[in-house]
């Protein structure tokens, strides 16, 4: 077999090689333009983390919620959880009064877990029970964009007031927000 190419063959080969590099270069330029676009042109803003923080602090500062509130001196204690108020009834009141997102809340859901010092769950309550499990499951899929959801988990060191005794514990808050 004669592998030696003639002059015409050489020319065609050179042109094709040149074209190959040219296309490669164009692809690199295209990716660079996309990178520039992604870096400098912002068309979406994500406020879910901030929204979750505001929700958390609303729960932790709400005198009508789960924290200990001394009626006599009209003072609330944001980091002391009143065990007698840490129940579904209080959460329903929060949902329908102090943090009310409409009758069908399709914006935010949360789960609060009160844990004692040994790590045992004392009780858990859910804000917007109807949607929490759905969005929690969706968040696990890590789907981005509409149809997915985001879960923000935070843990706080708290004091748990059980009648006259106060014990150390933790409050885990898991907030799910559907993607826009």
């Amino acid at each position: 077999m004669n592998l030696k190419t003639n002059k015409k063959g050489d020319q065609t080969f050179n042109t094709l090689t040149f074209m190959f590099f040219k296309v490669g270069f164009l692809i690199i330029v295209l990716f660079f333009l996309v990178y520039l676009y992604k870096s400098y042109v912002v068309t979406k803003i994500d406020v879910t983390d901030l929204e979750a923080q505001i929700f958390t602090h609303s729960i932790l500062n709400n005198k009508d919620g789960i924290i200990y509130y001394d009626e006599e001196i009209d003072r609330s204690y944001p980091e002391i959880i009143d065990l007698s108020k840490f129940n579904d009834k209080t959460m329903e009141q929060i949902e329908s009064n102090s943090i009310f997102y409409g009758k069908d809340n399709r914006h935010l859901a949360a789960k609060l877990e009160l844990i004692d010092e040994s790590g045992q769950i004392i009780n858990k309550i859910v804000y917007n029970n109807k949607w929490y499990e759905r969005w929690h499951t969706l968040a696990k899929t890590k789907v981005k964009g509409p149809g997915g959801s985001k879960e923000i988990v935070s843990s706080f060191y708290v004091l748990i007031k059980n009648k006259e005794t106060i014990e150390k514990g933790f409050l885990n808050i898991s907030i799910t927000i559907p993607n826009n």
């Binding site: 803003i45 406020v47 929204e51 505001i54 609303s58 500062n61």
Partner: peptide, 22 residues
């Protein structure tokens, strides 16, 4: 539209914050 997007979110979060201040 982007300005509207920012303002809508910012004002909504402001409302969330203000209403829960003791």
């Amino acid at each position: 539209d982007f300005e509207k997007l920012i303002l809508s979110r910012d004002i909504a979060l402001t409302m969330n914050t203000l209403q829960n201040i003791p």
